[in-house]
Nucleic acid binder design. Structure first.
Lengths: 248, 248
DNA sequence: CCCTTTCGTTGGTATATACCAGATAATTGA
DNA sequence: TCAATTATCTGGTATATACCAACGAAAGGG
């Protein structure tokens, strides 16, 4: 058997050994939330591998959701995953406050929006019907979590955009317009984030996130609000109580 | 302004141009489901870049869910995303048949399993209570989609494992034990797949997938089945009708 | 005709190097 | 003291090269 120059450490690839070591540091608690991970160059020297190999190990941590990148500042330990209870739609903002979480809501965009075919169908209105649309970025302790764009029928919620949108929408609609959420049709999927979304979320392009689409109905079954969210996948966890359609 | 030797094509990185080109071929329909993508070496020569750069472009396609790897055979165009209606739990197998989809179910493992703390709590039984556990791999046209492990109370469903498990569980429990699903508590999250799961799903490690945990209740609200699924994230899309908990 | 061997293809791992650009820390100058 | 400059971090892009391991198809032998 000839010399094996390229893989002297046998089966497990070297980047995986480094990955395991770093993961151990995180799960053991030596590196806490938002703590800086060693840089590519540091890992390369410290583990005696090339920078590309060091990077592979660090990228593996990202893929597992254990680390994130902050621009060119470095890599950091991901914060704990938080649960979003879809059945408790009213509460994301309220819940955060109750749990003493440092939640910030940034208004990215707000204004009128004409219903396209899809929105019109979901809200049971004519194509071209005027809607209010607004996009908000949710952060916890300065760390971006998800972006949400919501659409509501303008005629149904006059002057909605003049309220402070940095609060729970369901609460707002409930208090000022007496409209209450009863059921929600939800779709969840994993997909790559767009360039814009990546920028807002502080991600590099081609990163996968979780998209959540919600059509919210009142007690009469009439849809009155559509929400589209894109989450940093490693931070999201969605829970819901679903109704099982009987087959007969 | 001096010569720019390393990035002569200006702002957009070269791997991104290649990525865009290949994505265009896919979305335009020139490359159909499961069609082979050009190899790393071919892309490198064809676009006059190094193999590492070619790989970056191809890996970006994977990250977006547009392509998948099949071992060392090459990269291929991902099949269309399929929707799993959580509220229609009865139907994954039945639905596939109805839509003439070539669904295969492989039994990976089946046997008795003692309830741990978490399972016991969710099923409202004692720790150590005997359960039936079985793991199945779902494929469509030979292409792995997800792995599911289900747990049911052994005493409640005697001889369950002697039935053919390559069919809808809900249907099986309904027909033979007269137990019907009524509500489901669901949790969905994105997470890296384990080594085992990666092998079964034909993925490389450190790939993100979507995990779905289900606790299924009957009309009396008694939990009788727990299902844990891990999906290839680019193929999954989950829909559900949820109940909104009123706040008052 | 079938089985085996060979060879070319594919991705997987790994190194060494180079320069760019954003962010920050340290130094310098007014 | 404070502002501006400079040096040094960080990751981002990119090349060129090397060998390994798995797979498949073509060529060869019985």
């Amino acid at each position: 058997m000839p010399d094996d120059l390229t893989n002297p450490t046998e089966d497990p690839p070297r980047f995986r050994l480094i990955f395991n070591a770093l993961r151990g540091e995180i799960t053991a608690g030596n590196l806490v939330e938002h703590a800086a991970l060693p840089s590519e160059r540091y890992v390369a020297e410290n583990y005696d591998v090339s920078r590309m190999t060091a990077r592979r190990a660090l990228e593996a941590l990202e893929a597992e959701g254990l680390a994130y990148r902050d621009g060119r500042k470095g890599r950091f330990v991901s914060p704990q995953r938080l649960t979003y209870d879809i059945s408790q739609m009213v509460s994301f903002a309220a819940d955060a406050q109750a749990r003493n979480v440092d939640l910030q809501i940034e208004i990215i965009d707000a204004g009128p929006h004409d219903a396209d075919a899809k929105l019109a169908r979901e809200l049971s209105v004519q194509v071209g019907e005027q809607l209010h649309a607004y996009t908000r970025l949710f952060k916890i302790a300065g760390h971006a979590i998800f972006i949400e764009t919501e659409f509501v029928i303008a005629a149904q919620f006059p002057d909605l955009l003049r309220h402070d949108l940095r609060q729970s929408t369901t609460q707002l609609l409930s208090q000022h317009y007496n409209t209450r959420a009863h059921t929600g049709d939800v779709i969840i999927r994993m997909r790559g984030v767009s360039a814009n979304e990546a920028k807002l979320l502080g991600l590099s392009e081609n990163t996968a996130g979780i998209e959540l689409e919600q059509v919210i109905h009142d007690a009469e079954g009439t849809a009155f609000c559509i929400g589209r969210q894109i989450w940093r996948g490693e931070l999201a966890e969605f829970s819901a109580r679903t109704l099982v359609n009987s087959e007969s």
